[in-house]
Design a protein around this nucleic acid. Sequence first.
DNA 1: TAGGGACCTGCC
DNA 2: GCAGGTCCCT
Length: 316
Amino acid sequence: MNRFSVSIPTGRFDLELCASSGQVFRWQRLDDGTWLGVDGDHWYRVLLPPTDTPVRTRDSLKYVAKEKGPGGEEIFEVESNASREDFESLFRLDLDAEEVEAEIVRRAPELEPYMGTLAGLRLMEPSDPVEIFFAFLCTPNNNIRRITQMVRKLAAYGLVMDTVQGNELHRFPEAEVIAAIPEQELRSAGFGYRGRTIPSLANQLIERGGRAWLESLKSAPYEDAHRELKAMKGIGPKLADCIALFALHHTEAVPVDTHIWQALCRLYFPEWKDKAPTDQRYETAAAHFRSKLGDLSAWAHQYLFYDNVLNWRTRN
DNA sequence: TAGGGACCTGCC
DNA sequence: GCAGGTCCCT
Protein backbone atom coordinates (compact mmCIF):
# COMPACT_ATOMS: atom_id res chain seq x y z
CA MET A 1 0.00 0.00 0.00
CA ASN A 2 1.17 3.51 -0.80
CA ARG A 3 0.70 6.67 1.18
CA PHE A 4 1.09 10.08 -0.33
CA SER A 5 -0.30 13.55 0.07
CA VAL A 6 -1.48 15.87 -2.65
CA SER A 7 -1.34 19.61 -2.27
CA ILE A 8 -3.74 21.78 -4.28
CA PRO A 9 -4.47 25.51 -4.23
CA THR A 10 -7.52 26.16 -2.05
CA GLY A 11 -10.85 25.67 -3.80
CA ARG A 12 -9.51 23.96 -6.92
CA PHE A 13 -10.36 20.38 -5.98
CA ASP A 14 -13.46 19.15 -4.17
CA LEU A 15 -13.24 15.36 -4.13
CA GLU A 16 -16.65 14.96 -2.52
CA LEU A 17 -18.21 17.05 -5.26
CA CYS A 18 -16.41 15.11 -8.01
CA ALA A 19 -17.29 11.73 -6.53
CA SER A 20 -20.97 12.62 -6.03
CA SER A 21 -21.65 14.41 -9.31
CA GLY A 22 -22.63 11.44 -11.44
CA GLN A 23 -19.32 10.95 -13.26
CA VAL A 24 -18.29 7.91 -11.24
CA PHE A 25 -20.33 5.69 -8.96
CA ARG A 26 -17.87 3.75 -6.84
CA TRP A 27 -17.06 6.22 -4.06
CA GLN A 28 -18.39 6.24 -0.53
CA ARG A 29 -17.91 8.24 2.63
CA LEU A 30 -16.76 6.02 5.48
CA ASP A 31 -17.83 6.45 9.09
CA ASP A 32 -14.51 8.02 9.97
CA GLY A 33 -15.12 10.76 7.40
CA THR A 34 -12.56 9.54 4.86
CA TRP A 35 -13.62 8.80 1.28
CA LEU A 36 -13.03 5.40 -0.29
CA GLY A 37 -13.23 4.86 -4.01
CA VAL A 38 -12.44 2.30 -6.69
CA ASP A 39 -11.29 3.08 -10.22
CA GLY A 40 -10.36 0.14 -12.40
CA ASP A 41 -7.44 -1.71 -10.77
CA HIS A 42 -7.00 1.02 -8.21
CA TRP A 43 -8.53 2.05 -4.90
CA TYR A 44 -8.04 5.22 -2.92
CA ARG A 45 -8.82 6.15 0.66
CA VAL A 46 -8.67 9.90 1.04
CA LEU A 47 -8.59 12.14 4.08
CA LEU A 48 -9.99 15.45 2.94
CA PRO A 49 -8.45 18.74 4.05
CA PRO A 50 -10.19 20.24 7.08
CA THR A 51 -13.03 22.61 6.30
CA ASP A 52 -15.34 24.73 8.37
CA THR A 53 -18.10 24.85 5.78
CA PRO A 54 -21.18 22.71 6.45
CA VAL A 55 -21.07 19.16 5.15
CA ARG A 56 -23.12 18.74 2.04
CA THR A 57 -25.44 15.75 2.00
CA ARG A 58 -27.08 14.15 -0.97
CA ASP A 59 -30.30 13.76 0.99
CA SER A 60 -31.03 17.42 1.25
CA LEU A 61 -30.51 18.86 -2.17
CA LYS A 62 -28.94 21.85 -0.48
CA TYR A 63 -25.65 23.03 -1.78
CA VAL A 64 -23.49 25.27 0.36
CA ALA A 65 -20.93 27.15 -1.62
CA LYS A 66 -17.39 26.64 -0.46
CA GLU A 67 -15.67 29.77 0.79
CA LYS A 68 -12.85 30.67 -1.51
CA GLY A 69 -9.76 30.80 0.60
CA PRO A 70 -7.26 33.65 0.35
CA GLY A 71 -4.67 31.75 -1.63
CA GLY A 72 -3.16 28.94 0.37
CA GLU A 73 -3.07 25.21 -0.22
CA GLU A 74 -5.21 22.27 0.77
CA ILE A 75 -3.68 18.89 1.57
CA PHE A 76 -5.29 15.57 0.64
CA GLU A 77 -3.84 12.53 2.45
CA VAL A 78 -4.18 9.41 0.34
CA GLU A 79 -3.79 5.67 0.98
CA SER A 80 -3.88 3.59 -2.15
CA ASN A 81 -2.68 0.54 -4.03
CA ALA A 82 -1.86 2.95 -6.85
CA SER A 83 0.53 5.82 -7.35
CA ARG A 84 0.19 9.55 -6.90
CA GLU A 85 0.29 9.81 -10.69
CA ASP A 86 -2.74 7.52 -10.97
CA PHE A 87 -4.66 9.64 -8.48
CA GLU A 88 -3.71 12.86 -10.25
CA SER A 89 -4.73 11.33 -13.57
CA LEU A 90 -8.15 10.24 -12.31
CA PHE A 91 -9.02 13.76 -11.19
CA ARG A 92 -7.00 15.53 -13.90
CA LEU A 93 -5.06 17.42 -11.28
CA ASP A 94 -2.55 18.35 -13.97
CA LEU A 95 -5.08 20.89 -15.22
CA ASP A 96 -5.48 24.25 -13.52
CA ALA A 97 -9.21 24.31 -12.77
CA GLU A 98 -9.28 28.08 -12.38
CA GLU A 99 -7.69 28.52 -15.80
CA VAL A 100 -10.14 26.04 -17.34
CA GLU A 101 -13.11 27.86 -15.82
CA ALA A 102 -11.78 31.20 -17.04
CA GLU A 103 -11.40 29.82 -20.56
CA ILE A 104 -14.94 28.43 -20.47
CA VAL A 105 -16.28 31.85 -19.55
CA ARG A 106 -14.22 33.41 -22.33
CA ARG A 107 -15.77 31.03 -24.84
CA ALA A 108 -19.30 31.23 -23.38
CA PRO A 109 -19.83 34.23 -21.07
CA GLU A 110 -23.41 33.14 -20.45
CA LEU A 111 -22.10 30.19 -18.44
CA GLU A 112 -20.41 32.42 -15.88
CA PRO A 113 -23.28 32.08 -13.35
CA TYR A 114 -22.76 28.30 -13.27
CA MET A 115 -19.03 28.36 -12.68
CA GLY A 116 -18.54 30.08 -9.35
CA THR A 117 -20.86 28.04 -7.13
CA LEU A 118 -19.33 24.68 -8.02
CA ALA A 119 -15.69 25.54 -7.41
CA GLY A 120 -13.64 22.39 -7.12
CA LEU A 121 -15.79 20.29 -9.42
CA ARG A 122 -13.53 18.76 -12.04
CA LEU A 123 -14.05 16.64 -15.12
CA MET A 124 -12.70 13.20 -14.22
CA GLU A 125 -10.86 10.65 -16.33
CA PRO A 126 -11.70 7.13 -15.15
CA SER A 127 -9.16 4.48 -16.15
CA ASP A 128 -11.31 1.48 -17.05
CA PRO A 129 -13.62 1.83 -20.08
CA VAL A 130 -15.41 -1.47 -19.40
CA GLU A 131 -16.33 -0.45 -15.88
CA ILE A 132 -17.62 2.91 -17.09
CA PHE A 133 -19.49 1.33 -20.01
CA PHE A 134 -21.54 -0.80 -17.62
CA ALA A 135 -21.89 1.88 -14.97
CA PHE A 136 -23.62 4.18 -17.44
CA LEU A 137 -25.89 1.38 -18.62
CA CYS A 138 -27.44 1.71 -15.16
CA THR A 139 -28.20 5.42 -15.55
CA PRO A 140 -31.17 5.74 -17.96
CA ASN A 141 -34.45 6.72 -16.33
CA ASN A 142 -32.81 6.37 -12.93
CA ASN A 143 -31.42 8.45 -10.09
CA ILE A 144 -27.87 8.79 -8.79
CA ARG A 145 -28.66 7.07 -5.49
CA ARG A 146 -30.01 3.91 -7.11
CA ILE A 147 -27.41 3.97 -9.87
CA THR A 148 -24.71 3.84 -7.21
CA GLN A 149 -26.36 0.83 -5.58
CA MET A 150 -26.70 -0.97 -8.90
CA VAL A 151 -23.08 -0.36 -9.85
CA ARG A 152 -22.05 -1.69 -6.45
CA LYS A 153 -24.05 -4.88 -7.08
CA LEU A 154 -22.49 -5.36 -10.52
CA ALA A 155 -19.03 -4.76 -9.09
CA ALA A 156 -19.64 -7.51 -6.54
CA TYR A 157 -19.48 -10.00 -9.42
CA GLY A 158 -15.79 -9.12 -9.81
CA LEU A 159 -12.84 -10.50 -7.89
CA VAL A 160 -11.90 -8.99 -4.56
CA MET A 161 -8.70 -7.01 -5.04
CA ASP A 162 -8.33 -5.75 -1.48
CA THR A 163 -10.05 -5.20 1.85
CA VAL A 164 -9.82 -1.68 3.22
CA GLN A 165 -11.30 -0.63 6.57
CA GLY A 166 -13.42 -3.77 6.47
CA ASN A 167 -14.70 -3.03 2.97
CA GLU A 168 -14.14 -5.66 0.30
CA LEU A 169 -13.16 -3.83 -2.86
CA HIS A 170 -13.92 -5.60 -6.12
CA ARG A 171 -12.28 -5.27 -9.48
CA PHE A 172 -15.21 -4.59 -11.82
CA PRO A 173 -16.09 -7.80 -13.72
CA GLU A 174 -15.33 -8.23 -17.42
CA ALA A 175 -18.13 -8.26 -20.00
CA GLU A 176 -18.07 -12.07 -20.15
CA VAL A 177 -19.08 -12.24 -16.49
CA ILE A 178 -21.89 -9.70 -16.90
CA ALA A 179 -23.16 -11.49 -20.00
CA ALA A 180 -23.59 -14.69 -18.01
CA ILE A 181 -25.81 -13.20 -15.30
CA PRO A 182 -29.41 -14.46 -15.64
CA GLU A 183 -31.98 -11.72 -16.20
CA GLN A 184 -34.05 -12.94 -13.28
CA GLU A 185 -31.07 -12.69 -10.94
CA LEU A 186 -30.65 -9.02 -11.73
CA ARG A 187 -34.38 -8.35 -11.57
CA SER A 188 -34.46 -9.91 -8.12
CA ALA A 189 -31.60 -7.63 -7.17
CA GLY A 190 -33.71 -4.60 -8.08
CA PHE A 191 -32.40 -3.87 -11.59
CA GLY A 192 -35.87 -3.83 -13.14
CA TYR A 193 -35.87 -3.99 -16.92
CA ARG A 194 -32.12 -3.33 -16.93
CA GLY A 195 -31.80 -6.95 -15.86
CA ARG A 196 -32.36 -7.74 -19.52
CA THR A 197 -30.59 -4.82 -21.20
CA ILE A 198 -27.32 -5.00 -19.27
CA PRO A 199 -26.44 -8.63 -20.14
CA SER A 200 -27.65 -7.92 -23.68
CA LEU A 201 -25.21 -5.03 -24.01
CA ALA A 202 -22.48 -7.21 -22.52
CA ASN A 203 -23.05 -9.70 -25.35
CA GLN A 204 -23.08 -6.94 -27.95
CA LEU A 205 -19.82 -5.61 -26.54
CA ILE A 206 -18.23 -9.07 -26.72
CA GLU A 207 -19.44 -9.54 -30.32
CA ARG A 208 -17.61 -6.36 -31.30
CA GLY A 209 -14.37 -7.34 -29.64
CA GLY A 210 -14.94 -6.48 -25.98
CA ARG A 211 -12.38 -4.43 -24.12
CA ALA A 212 -10.03 -4.13 -27.09
CA TRP A 213 -12.82 -2.75 -29.28
CA LEU A 214 -13.74 -0.20 -26.63
CA GLU A 215 -10.10 0.80 -26.25
CA SER A 216 -9.79 1.22 -30.01
CA LEU A 217 -12.60 3.78 -29.98
CA LYS A 218 -10.46 6.01 -27.77
CA SER A 219 -8.27 6.88 -30.72
CA ALA A 220 -11.16 7.09 -33.19
CA PRO A 221 -12.69 10.49 -33.93
CA TYR A 222 -15.47 11.40 -31.50
CA GLU A 223 -18.13 11.23 -34.22
CA ASP A 224 -17.10 7.67 -35.14
CA ALA A 225 -17.02 6.50 -31.54
CA HIS A 226 -20.43 8.03 -30.90
CA ARG A 227 -21.93 6.40 -33.99
CA GLU A 228 -20.48 2.98 -33.15
CA LEU A 229 -21.81 3.08 -29.60
CA LYS A 230 -25.23 4.34 -30.65
CA ALA A 231 -25.53 1.40 -33.04
CA MET A 232 -25.82 -0.95 -30.07
CA LYS A 233 -29.38 -1.83 -29.09
CA GLY A 234 -30.02 -0.18 -25.77
CA ILE A 235 -27.64 2.73 -26.30
CA GLY A 236 -29.17 5.97 -27.53
CA PRO A 237 -27.48 9.32 -28.19
CA LYS A 238 -27.24 10.26 -24.51
CA LEU A 239 -25.61 7.02 -23.34
CA ALA A 240 -23.31 7.03 -26.36
CA ASP A 241 -22.12 10.47 -25.30
CA CYS A 242 -21.65 9.48 -21.65
CA ILE A 243 -19.57 6.47 -22.67
CA ALA A 244 -17.64 8.46 -25.29
CA LEU A 245 -16.85 10.98 -22.59
CA PHE A 246 -16.17 9.07 -19.38
CA ALA A 247 -14.97 5.74 -20.81
CA LEU A 248 -13.19 6.99 -23.93
CA HIS A 249 -12.29 10.53 -22.85
CA HIS A 250 -13.76 12.33 -25.86
CA THR A 251 -14.04 15.73 -24.21
CA GLU A 252 -16.09 17.28 -27.00
CA ALA A 253 -18.98 14.98 -26.09
CA VAL A 254 -22.10 16.70 -24.76
CA PRO A 255 -24.44 14.21 -23.10
CA VAL A 256 -27.87 15.85 -23.36
CA ASP A 257 -29.94 14.43 -20.53
CA THR A 258 -33.06 15.89 -19.00
CA HIS A 259 -31.01 18.40 -17.00
CA ILE A 260 -28.78 19.55 -19.84
CA TRP A 261 -31.77 19.73 -22.15
CA GLN A 262 -33.45 22.16 -19.77
CA ALA A 263 -30.28 24.22 -19.50
CA LEU A 264 -29.65 24.32 -23.26
CA CYS A 265 -33.26 25.34 -23.92
CA ARG A 266 -33.03 28.03 -21.27
CA LEU A 267 -29.74 29.38 -22.63
CA TYR A 268 -29.99 28.89 -26.40
CA PHE A 269 -33.25 27.35 -27.60
CA PRO A 270 -36.19 28.94 -25.72
CA GLU A 271 -38.54 27.85 -28.52
CA TRP A 272 -37.88 24.22 -27.53
CA LYS A 273 -38.60 24.73 -23.84
CA ASP A 274 -41.56 22.35 -23.72
CA LYS A 275 -40.47 20.11 -26.58
CA ALA A 276 -38.87 16.72 -26.36
CA PRO A 277 -35.22 16.25 -27.40
CA THR A 278 -35.70 14.33 -30.63
CA ASP A 279 -32.61 13.01 -32.40
CA GLN A 280 -32.56 16.13 -34.57
CA ARG A 281 -32.92 18.57 -31.70
CA TYR A 282 -30.42 16.59 -29.63
CA GLU A 283 -27.81 16.86 -32.37
CA THR A 284 -28.53 20.53 -33.05
CA ALA A 285 -28.35 21.52 -29.38
CA ALA A 286 -25.23 19.46 -28.67
CA ALA A 287 -23.50 20.73 -31.80
CA HIS A 288 -24.27 24.31 -30.85
CA PHE A 289 -22.73 23.84 -27.41
CA ARG A 290 -19.76 22.04 -28.96
CA SER A 291 -19.18 24.85 -31.47
CA LYS A 292 -18.85 27.32 -28.61
CA LEU A 293 -16.86 25.25 -26.10
CA GLY A 294 -14.82 22.90 -28.34
CA ASP A 295 -12.61 20.59 -26.29
CA LEU A 296 -13.97 22.12 -23.08
CA SER A 297 -17.54 21.09 -23.93
CA ALA A 298 -17.59 18.20 -21.49
CA TRP A 299 -15.99 20.15 -18.67
CA ALA A 300 -18.55 22.93 -19.06
CA HIS A 301 -21.32 20.38 -19.42
CA GLN A 302 -20.40 18.86 -16.05
CA TYR A 303 -20.93 22.21 -14.32
CA LEU A 304 -24.24 22.75 -16.09
CA PHE A 305 -25.36 19.25 -15.27
CA TYR A 306 -24.61 19.23 -11.59
CA ASP A 307 -25.84 22.76 -11.04
CA ASN A 308 -29.15 21.67 -12.52
CA VAL A 309 -29.23 18.46 -10.46
CA LEU A 310 -28.82 20.47 -7.27
CA ASN A 311 -31.15 23.31 -8.19
CA TRP A 312 -33.75 22.00 -10.62
CA ARG A 313 -36.49 21.92 -8.03
CA THR A 314 -36.19 25.63 -7.41
CA ARG A 315 -35.57 26.76 -10.97
CA ASN A 316 -38.43 27.81 -13.23
C1' DT B 1 -39.32 12.97 -38.54
C1' DA B 2 -42.13 14.08 -34.37
C1' DG B 3 -45.15 12.51 -30.69
C1' DG B 4 -46.59 9.29 -27.16
C1' DG B 5 -46.68 5.11 -24.26
C1' DA B 6 -44.21 1.39 -21.85
C1' DC B 7 -40.65 0.11 -18.96
C1' DC B 8 -38.37 -1.41 -13.05
C1' DT B 9 -37.75 0.85 -8.80
C1' DG B 10 -37.78 4.20 -5.20
C1' DC B 11 -38.21 8.76 -3.42
C1' DC B 12 -40.45 13.57 -3.31
C1' DG C 1 -44.37 12.80 -11.08
C1' DC C 2 -39.67 12.12 -11.91
C1' DA C 3 -34.82 10.22 -12.01
C1' DG C 4 -28.00 11.51 -16.17
C1' DG C 5 -33.37 7.28 -21.72
C1' DT C 6 -34.41 4.03 -25.18
C1' DC C 7 -37.38 1.37 -27.96
C1' DC C 8 -41.35 0.75 -30.57
C1' DC C 9 -45.23 2.17 -32.83
C1' DT C 10 -48.32 5.48 -35.15
